[in-house]
Structures are given as structure tokens and as C-alpha cells.
Design a protein around this nucleic acid. Sequence first.
DNA 1: ATTCAGATGGACT
DNA 2: GTCCATCTGAATG
Length: 203
Amino acid sequence: MKKLGREFYSRDTLIVAKELLGKVLVYEVGGQKISAKIVETEAYMGIEDKAAHSYGGRRTKRVEVMYGAPGFSYVFMIYGMYFCFNVVTREVGNPQAVLIRAVEPREGLDFMAQNRFKKPYCELTQAQKRGLTNGPGKLCQAFSIDKNLNGEDLCGRRLYMEEGEKEIFNIVSTKRVGIDYAQEAKDFPWRFYIEGNKHVSVK
DNA sequence: ATTCAGATGGACT
DNA sequence: GTCCATCTGAATG
């Protein structure tokens, strides 16, 4: 499958967030290929978006990568124990990104199951299989994505996105999750997911 | 089914 | 010191 190039990520963040649905996230570790279909995303619109870490032009060590080139990863720690994985969008100096909120496991099921539940995939309960990667913290744990992968070039060969199968689906737009502090921005319909998909975090 | 507290650490004021 | 772009397990209806 074809790897997504820099030009894919340099576009309007809302478009990238929607078009990432159905694409495949790939992580190559230890000679094996871990992959999963993206089923849920959120757009963070930068300077003007009260929910974004870069709101108002805030430029700290943490968000610095958002100001850089598109197609790089922005990974941050949340609540002291989880990580969230984002893809930087737009041109240099315009700090926007797409949060990957949920994926549907494809390859490397045992790798993911070990990371999440310390068990091979075949020993998981149905609930555990469903809960493997249906949330931003969960998918990072499953993929073992942490701060070491912050600033990673997604046009490289370690962590990247590729085209999925051709597939028809409806996209649902709703308000973003976990940003009640963001005043009027908390209700903007900038969360997107594949209608009917079982691995979406919240319906 | 829904609600709730607790975990836990770094970024920020 | 306070606030999180979260998740889990336990308690409750």
C-alpha cells in the first residue's frame, strides 16, 4: 500500500482529519509490522482554537513540534500515565494537528494484546478485544507509542500512514471529547468517525 | 446501565 | 499548587 506523503498533511486540518479515516497507521518495531485502520480523529485548529495546546500562539517546549513541518508526530503525556498521538498538519509556523482517537487492529494483534493486557490476543475476552485500541490512550499503549516518538517523521520508515482498502463509509461529525474547559470551542463539530465502526471510542 | 474516585507526572501560572 | 485532548475498577440503580 502507498505511504502518505508530506503533501497529504500540509492541507486544511479538517480535511486531513476526515481523510485519515480508513487510512492505516503502521509502526515497524523489532522486525515486525504493527498496523491498524484509523476510525476516529479530532482536529485541533491551532492559534484560534481554545481547545488546542497552541491556542493563542502558546509556544512551549511541549507544543514546539506543532509549529514545525506537517507530517510529523506530536505525542504528549496526559493525566500522568497515558499518551496521545497526533499528526501535525498545515505549513511551518501554523500549529495545527489531528489527534488519532481510535483505530481498528489489523496486524500485530499479539503485540497489542501484550502491551495492553500482558496476554496473547487469543486469551483476551471479547470486551478486551473490543477495548484494545478504542481510545487515544489505549491505542498508544497498544502500539507502545510514547514520548520517544514525539517529533517522528511520519514520512519516514518507522512510523507512518498508508492507504487502506477502497471502502465506502459515512463520516459522523460530533463535538470533541474531554475539552469542557474550552468554552465555545468545546461544541465545535471537529471530531470525526466512521459510522457504525465497532472500534470508535464514544458513540 | 451510569456514576465516580483514583492513579500519576509533567506542563504551566 | 492546579489542571489536564484518559482509563480502570468498583459501586450503584
